[in-house]
Design a protein around this nucleic acid. Structure first.
Lengths: 342, 342
DNA sequence: CTGAAAGCGCTTACAG
DNA sequence: CTGAAAGCGCTTACAG
């Protein structure tokens, strides 16, 4: 079985390849009857549209790159769901990369995208990405949109939750319950999210006149395991190191709860714990986890939509800067108990 | 800045495009001095290799499709890690799809892969995929390798753990601890894994002369939430519905433990719980979770390696059938306690 | 060791 | 409404 191309069909029907091409894309230039015959022949012969050829000719590939730190992290997985939903309805295919906060991996993938002639990239930049890096990508002809994280100085639309405000809200909630010794676990100073959430935390303390104790802040990876370890480190020598813990994200918070329990400290009774992101698991953990809804699906959807707009030219890249922050919402659950009476 | 192509460089240096092409790919046909000049000019001018053009000419794209039910599930995420590791060293790029057990989504993506001229696909087939579907893919020129799941009747290499044996092992472990009322939660009859694990479970019961009680088997999604719900359904009316629970996977088991706890039943003390897959979380849950190591990273790696072998022609597709099952290992932890004395 | 030429399979003006 | 022709940027025989 020889490969079927436009010209195979053209020959068979005695028309030109131009007509076949137009017909298959439903151009109004082609007579309906001709279209019918052509489409019928195409599907009968098992014709497969060759995107490489089309893309070479038009210099549009229909590929959008999506670059995130780690798909295994539910936070980014939910962003992806949003992107997937939004892109599903357009004619774009997305191809995915985990950079795991390695600049080299990110660079490498961008290079691959350029080679494939990708139309754009939705990026949650790796730690260490500079505004110059972003400019370089854009000047290679690859429009960029940020999601979740952003890079200072880069003039690129960014779609994300208001991390500072959310962290402020959850910290304030714990303070209102009566907590004064509040720890902050996780997040890295080098990421915009890490910074913003930490700032929100500190702002709430300051506003309440609580002094920030450096020992009560532990940076870490963003995994369950890191939370588990951090909790054990913080509470193994002093079981009253803190009465409440704000975690950088839910994954960490779940790990923290597990770590506390392994020391015989019951989260939601002996120590209050709060997470961030409101991933699906927060609702079914035991105790259920107080968290901050951060709109990651929404962020993914908005980022994808902005990208499609840029690509279809319905909006200039300048105008795509409608990057209002998504407003976070506090989700109070069992894990944020009041402090134990002394 | 005009786009730089092979001919831009060729003109600049006064050589032919053939020579430039050869030089950039390090062909021994080109003199070292010429190579030097060409490479220098390429990197200086910011030349970007156009894979679409190359691929159109050679009809090899360097793309491998990876199609799994759900990347958010750590089981598949770990398979992906294996694939990523293995493919990292070859010159292949992979593009990913979640089919979420929707045949249409799977079909759609295969179509996209064909349009991009993908070289092959590593597939964990959606429920309902038939041997004919697989044959159709292969006869379109896309070699297939299965990972984790397989399709009966399809002559395709498959890389996966021995699910039946693993489920047998963990069930047997619980029986040896003295359990007789053992439930099985999760998995779908329609997937090969669901079937195999269920069979292993039943085989262990039968061998121990324990009658299988249909009420003690609940099929379900493969999520934490489903486990949570199933546990509550099973134990809310009868707190002694079972003394031990074998779960289709760890995600479910973690949900089950959470569900039990929400009813005031302590997993690992009142009821034994075991999972499957030995995901990273099993080790840090509280109680730590007894599970079966299933070698998913290994499976991913082997599948990717087999695919690369098929593509480089170092092995015929027939010979790639070295699909020995990965031997599962039992990981006994706190959650599998003996039955409570009556 | 290097070059001229053809061709992969599309789409896009242009002409009719 | 349809066709002939050029060209996207590579690679691959082939000739020298």
């Amino acid at each position: 079985m020889r490969k079927v191309t436009l010209s195979t069909i053209a020959e068979e029907l005695g028309v030109s390849t131009a007509t076949v091409s137009l017909a298959l894309r439903d151009s109004p230039l082609v007579a309906d009857a001709t279209k019918e015959r052509i489409k019928e022949a195409a599907s009968r012969s098992g014709y497969i549209y060759n995107r490489r050829a089309a893309s070479l000719r038009t210099s549009r590939s229909g590929i959008i790159g999506v670059v995130v730190p780690d798909i295994m992290n539910p936070f980014f997985a939910e962003i992806l769901v949003g992107i997937e939903e939004e892109l599903g309805s357009s004619r774009h295919t997305f191809i995915l990369c985990n950079h795991r906060d390695k600049i080299a991996a990110q660079q490498n993938f961008i290079e691959t995208l350029l080679q494939f002639g990708a139309d754009g990239v939705i990026l949650s930049p790796a730690i260490g990405t500079t505004a110059d890096d972003i400019r370089a990508i854009e000047s290679s002809g690859l429009p960029v949109v940020f999601v979740a994280r952003w890079v200072k100085g880069a003039r690129v639309p960014v779609f994300r939750g208001d991390d500072k405000k959310g962290a402020y809200m959850v910290t304030r909630h714990l303070i209102e319950m009566g907590h004064r010794k509040i720890a902050f676990i996780g997040g890295k100073r080098e990421t915009s999210t890490g910074n913003d959430r930490r700032e929100g935390f500190l702002a709430a303390l300051e506003q309440a006149g609580i002094e920030a104790v450096p020992e009560l802040r532990i940076g870490s990876e963003r995994t369950r395991k890191a939370g588990y370890d951090a909790a054990r480190t913080m509470f193994s020598k002093d079981r009253e190191a803190a009465t409440a813990i704000v975690c950088f994200n839910d994954l960490l918070a779940i790990g923290v709860m597990s770590g506390l329990r392994s020391l015989g400290i019951e989260p939601g009774r002996d120590v209050a714990v709060a997470g961030y992101d409101d991933i699906a698991e927060a609702e079914i953990s035991a105790p259920t986890l107080t968290s901050v809804w951060n709109g990651q699906q929404e962020a993914g959807r908005l980022a994808a939509r902005a990208m499609v707009r840029i690509l279809t030219g319905s909006v200039s890249e300048e105008d795509a800067h409608d990057d209002r922050l998504i407003q976070p919402e506090l989700r109070i659950r069992e894990s944020s108990c009041p402090p134990k009476p002394v």
